[in-house]
Amino acid sequence: MSDMTHVTDELELFALDALPASDRARIAAHLAECPACREQARLLDEVAVALPGTLPERAVPTRLRARILATAGAERAVPRPRRRTAWASWLSPARVAIAVLAIAVVVLGAVDAATMRELAVTRAERDAYADTAVRFSHGGQTWYMAGRDQWAGSGGTLVAPSKPDAAAFIVFHDLRPVTSGAVYTLWLVDADGRWMRAANFMPNGEVAQTVTLDTPVQGFAQCALTIELQREGKRAGPLVMQSRISQPQ
């Protein structure tokens, strides 16, 4: 599965976007697994994204700002079922704290709070957990999915904040790399067994990875993660993990 031939020779091309899509995907897959190449790629990316800063700016059409905000606002306005009363009572502050810690422990594989504090987590990981905690403070529900079969050891916690307009998200941990061209696909399954694609994403190679859902999870019975070769259409790939996500009424 993992191709450990380093891609050093192609990182300049990658940083400048001078590769066709197929090569790009191959390099991205390698970077997901190789910290050494990833660090080099990051340094080159820094140079590449300095290049736009060398351009004189142009007058931007004033409508563009409004257009962007309108599209984003329309997406946000998609009605989400409100269950504030049910969820608000679900979590006391103490339970929130315990739940936040539980997620962090699950994600880090730490045994207790003291160990967790001592862990020299990367900035990104700390951000992810801080983010988790912030969103958690709104109260909400969580479900843990454990990796099956060859994916034992991977897992993910689905968090559905009670705040009506806050997006649900999943904190995955220890996701394995996927073969070139494949993606992880997150599905929401309704009570009638219909599978709806909620997100496609690539593993980022880190211990923890947060994926935000555009779709509210309310009303769905299960959530599942598979590996797919197609970015759209029906489920075809193997089941990596799954959980029931029924809500209290």
């Binding site: 736009p52 700016e57 142009r58 931007v60 563009l64 905000l69 983010d131 307009d165 998200f169």
Partner: peptide, 26 residues
């Protein structure tokens, strides 16, 4: 970015005001 993930439109507006021009120039 954290606020964006929480679907905060104001955060998107601020981000656009910071980087919209250079993005458009590019």
């Amino acid at each position: 970015i954290g606020a964006l993930a929480g679907r905060d439109l104001t955060a998107l507006a601020v981000l656009y005001d910071r980087y919209g021009r250079v993005a458009y120039a590019l």
